[in-house]
């Protein structure tokens, strides 16, 4: 399996290393089998030899990125709102 490591270079690495703690689709039977075997043999924990598994942004599920972005801005907006309320409370109390 090709895996893009932290230097941006594509290298061949052991599949178990790539699968360590990364999401495997329920339909990826090959991936699931490798992961299960790795778990059974104790190879997967805890990915000490694995590269830092950055990947191309296009590989991230779009729904997940959108959900987190929307939520992040809602949270930032709420924090700012609460801070404004606290500052206004100084004068209006």
């Amino acid at each position: 399996m090709n895996h893009e490591n932290t230097d941006g270079k594509s290298t061949d690495t052991d599949k178990t290393d790539v699968l360590i703690n990364t999401t495997v689709s329920d339909y990826d039977t090959e991936g699931l089998a490798i992961k299960e075997e790795g778990l059974r043999e104790g190879k997967i924990f805890p990915g000490l030899d694995a590269d830092y598994p950055l990947r191309d942004p296009s590989e991230d599920p779009r729904w997940a990125v959108r959900t987190v972005k929307i939520w992040m801005w809602i949270t930032i907006f709420c924090i700012v709102g609460i801070l404004v309320l606290m500052i206004l409370g100084i004068w209006y109390d």
């Binding site: 990364t22 990947r55 599920p61 997940a64 990125v65 987190v68 992040m72």
Partner: peptide, 14 residues
Amino acid sequence: WEHLWGHKKLHITL
């Protein structure tokens, strides 16, 4: 966590 390896900075910001 595992869905955002391509957007790590976004995940860290969260």
